[in-house]
Design a protein around this nucleic acid. Structure first.
Lengths: 197, 197
DNA sequence: TGCATATATATCTTTCTGATATATTATAAA
DNA sequence: TTTATAATATATCAGAAAGATATATATGCA
């Protein structure tokens, strides 16, 4: 029913046959910070999809280590994927804990808030670098293989969002640093126990 | 233990006493699309926090409708909130289903993809408008009341991210529209059943 | 030699989402 | 006027997702 995980798995398998482990890795690199799927969803879902005949399993016998279970999408699975792809997308959602901590910033000192924002900035820089590196590789191969057209589109949004995050961090720190009444604000926060808004 | 919901609730109550219903409304308007909390978390968590002595409840008896249960943060709750505020924030996460559908775009027609991107754009425009409106009100009150300083900081990131989304949508549609081999790409996608990458 | 990382599958608990139920009042539309 | 639906307010439940942990081996590297 309403489990997006199954369609992420079908979508990944529509590109090439993979193990559950591969699916996780691929979602991490291809979707960056804009989607995630973990083993707790992948392995049970693969079993459900197999029962429904939407994927097939080929076991590669391994010596002295877990057998590789390589899954492929079936025609039935591809049809289900396409049906889902035609439906309108769910609204975007995000979890930015840094914004939560900034929003409750009256309980923190200037330095503590700036520390949070700098860590936020560092994560955005690191993710921007990751996205740029993969984008570079894909762009080089785009001339030979058209299949990178769509993944590249998603990377361009990722890059823009991370850049926006980095720029915001810089201006936010500036604003906090030159804020004259900050200490007063902080003292108010410290002593306030559920007063009026 | 590791439930962020309780700290969101404590944070909201640190601003003023509220009902569970108020908390939901406030998170929606103040955090926009960057955090969400629903009743399934709010009401059980409020009970837990009450048991732990981190919030207190005052029941306002209502005639012919549910009594209002107004919660306030205690000193103990405020201390727990501050402890959490000092911890490093969890890495950002997001769910952008539109990107998922674009990434699997080889199974869709040009028009179908553009439709998804336009819907994404519309959501971003609407959220940008919401953020701008609330920001405007807050800015007007900032001169009188310093408390809006932090919420305003979060709104500025929200606005930037939505603007980035809108700009991406425009350039993505342009790229798709002028893409010559698109039909070929689509036909390949249509006929491909788990071939090589 | 020891440590970290990568490959690979699996499960389990906690947390979160989304939907639904109940009940009233206020407002807007037919 | 009636009808619908949005807003206020609390509450619960099933299903989905997150996060952590367990197991086992191989490989690279100080």
């Amino acid at each position: 029913m309403g489990s997006t995980a199954q369609f992420v798995i079908l979508g990944m398998l529509s590109k090439e046959p993979m193990t559950g482990y591969d699916i996780r890795k691929r979602v991490k690199t291809r979707m960056g910070s804009f989607w995630d799927i973990n083993y707790g969803q992948i392995y049970p879902t693969l079993r459900t999809l197999e029962k429904k005949g939407e994927v097939t399993k080929k076991v590669e016998i391994m010596e002295n280590r877990p057998n590789r279970k390589v899954y492929s999408i079936t025609n039935k699975g591809l049809n289900e994927l396409k049906k889902w792809l035609l439906k309108p997308a769910e609204p975007e959602s995000a979890k930015i804990e840094t914004l939560l901590k900034v929003a409750f910033g009256e309980h923190l000192s200037k330095d503590e808030i700036i520390k949070h924002i700098n860590e936020f900035k560092a994560r955005n820089i690191s993710r921007l670098e990751d996205a740029s590196n993969i984008e570079k590789e894909m762009k080089a191969q785009l001339k030979k293989n058209e299949k990178y057209f769509f993944p590249l589109l998603t990377f361009s949004l990722g890059k823009s969002l991370h850049k926006a995050g980095i720029e915001w961090a810089d201006t936010a720190i500036e604003l906090i640093e030159k804020h004259k009444n900050f200490t007063k604000l902080y003292e108010n926060g410290k002593n306030k126990i559920s007063k009026i808004n």
